[in-house]
């Protein structure tokens, strides 16, 4: 079984990909905001860890980045999903759903 951080990391990747899929090109702060909003502050995201995650996704070629101007006229780096990233999101979301379903079934069976 992989260590805990790995799972969290994988989860963070999935959240970021999904966020970019929904919002389109977005900067780091925006992504962090969105994840916190959607999870209704259940996930306390340490924003600092977001950037290494973004770099990792970019190194894998799932997202790309480009400097742009924010809605408040501020310079910011905008990240957007690549085609490979979209495919990856689909695969990972599927995998996640399957896993969740399995875990749910297991939990139900024991209770």
């Amino acid at each position: 079984m992989p260590p805990k951080s790995e799972v969290l990391q994988g989860t963070l990747d999935l959240l970021v990909l999904k966020t970019l899929d929904t919002l389109g090109p977005m900067h780091g702060f925006g992504i962090a905001q969105r994840i916190q909003q959607v999870s209704q502050d259940v996930l306390r995201l340490n924003q600092g860890t977001l950037y290494p995650a973004l770099l990792r996704l970019e190194q894998r070629g799932w997202i790309s980045s480009r400097w742009g101007v924010s809605e408040n006229n501020r310079n910011a780096k905008f990240y957007s999903l690549t085609r490979r990233g979209r495919r990856q999101l689909r695969d990972e979301a599927e995998g996640w759903n399957q896993m969740a379903a399995v875990i749910n079934r297991v939990l139900k069976a024991t209770s």
């Binding site: 780091g28 702060f29 950037y51 924010s70 408040n72 310079n75």
Partner: peptide, 10 residues
């Protein structure tokens, strides 16, 4: 620059 922009937005 990226981190600065993040903090400023925050």
């Amino acid at each position: 620059a990226e981190l600065r922009s993040h903090l400023e937005m925050a």
